[in-house]
Design a protein around this nucleic acid. Sequence first.
DNA 1: GCAAGGTC
Length: 654
Amino acid sequence: MPPITILNVAEKPSVARALADVFRQSPGSIDRPMTRGEAAQIFACDNVMFPSVFRQGDGRTIHGPDIPHTMITTSVRGHLASHDFGPQYGWSACTPSALFEAPIQTMYKSDMEPLERMLLQQVRNVQAVVLWLDCDREGEAISDEVREVCLRGSGGRLEGRIYRAKFSTVLTQEIQRALRSLGRVNDAFVQAVQARSEIDLRCGAAFTRFQTLRLQKKFDGFDTGSVVSYGPCQFPTLGFVVERWARIETFVPEDFWFLEMMIRLNEDGSTVPGVVMNDSGGGGGGAQRQRAQQQGRAINLSWRRGRLYDRVLTMALYESCLEAQEAVVTSMTGRPKNKWRPVPLATVELQKRASRYLRIGSESVMTAAEELYNQGYISYPRTETEKFRPEFEHLPLIQSFTGVAGVFGEYATKLLSNNNFQNPRLGQNDDNAHPPITPCKAVEPSTISDQTQRGIYTLVVKHYLACCSRDALGKETQLTLKIASEDFTAKGLMILEKNWLEIYAPWERWSTGQGELPRAEVGSRITPTALLMKDGRTTAPTPISEVELISLMDRNGIGTDATIAQHITTIQERAYVTKDAQQKFLPTKLGIALVEGYNSMGYQLNKPDLRREMEFECNLVASGQKNKGPNYCPYIGKNARMLQSSKCRSPQAR
DNA sequence: GCAAGGTC
């Protein structure tokens, strides 16, 4: 087979650049100057030794021997196509529920048109196309969009010559492997994404119009400029905020009682003698107790039962303890305890940690991270990956930090000496498209002028160095005493080696409680210096924090790592929730009214279940068990029926 | 004037 020209298309410029670098490194290849079109960079390289790609008569893809190809490499920027209803389905042109049936048009928005033109032009001169879009479901759908444009541009000439590469990292070996095992676009994945997209558009637009128009009609002076939007992700997000608020509103405080014990022990573990509990002050007891109270170390023990909501019962137990006078040491344990270093950093965890440590909102985190990524400070910031590939070279990266002044330099130097470096732990998730979020450039944070970016960069570096460190080591001692029928315990920790906690200070600490406890002998008797019955009252939960909100969304599959922050911003922009001075979220009247309005009609739209059901259905489509046919979606049916139901038609009557 | 998903 003669040498051919192959067009390689990536999902984003960074991957295109990395791919082009791999092609360039092929021995004997001849690099052509990069052209920068109006839409994207286009890299060209002649004489690249790679497997020849072609299709057999039966449609199967096989690879031929390595022969020199010309590789043209470029990228799109996410989705090429967008979808909307036609002009005849404008706001005033139809009833909202008509949107469940209305035809949907595919178009290329103005910012994507130049990319479309570029692809149309490039395919004229190539004999094959390889799609290097991210290897996730959304990437498959974008592959389909690119494929469609390429077929159109080639007038069908490239039919059967458009291939899908499956790769998880842009490294020479992986790219060669991918070229030897080229496949086709997975149509089931594409259908699943299209189904999800169509449902989101139909439901979102229909309900948004319904709510907006209905509320405008119903309330005088309703701000006509604002939209009362509904979305399958924004609504459950609002639901989490309202749910917490409702728990606070309906909270009823409860009284509780508990016992507390204090003892004194000498550091060698021996008991402090002569302490009389419950002493009335008569005789020599008072002076004796005073002396004893200055000896040894005071240790607080907490009640094994925690708390009781029954005063009389607590009182009875308390009295039995007072009567018993003496406590017996029932166990004394000391065991090594480690505090594990974190797993490599993914997007959602970055957002949570930035909120917790730096009080930066998730949307600002992503803006700053994006900017840091564009300037080459950190790796791609939108990833689920929590494990490094085995070939990742940690030592050179850590080495690059040894030259940085300040804590980074000092810690990196330490990490490289005395075998301190440890390969990072493997987290659970992997999007098979990107590495975990990692620093790419070693600098002193003070050289970054933007405060938010500086904070995020510092966090990424500290987290990475912590990942490459040893676990923190400690020794935990636990002392248990029994008095009458009741058990009391005290825990103490001694930190032996801080390791990763050293670089993660001051954000991460390890509470040592009362420090290492003196070793008391099992069976020895101790008279407490105090035994108290205390009371307390349960307090209402606080409004939901951003960290909690992100966790709930993540756990319930509301949004993705790249969109969670956007949904949180949306419900603020729509004036459904506000953020208070403590960075906690409270629903507005409008937000509460929307959730409770649907609830009172019997529709739990605030719950994440609807989204989960829909994702489940889409998974069936992705695995080929279901079709995205005309009647593919009970979700749409359910929602259409709801909007057409009498409850939604005449809310005034209710 | 609507969604959520990519990416910048």
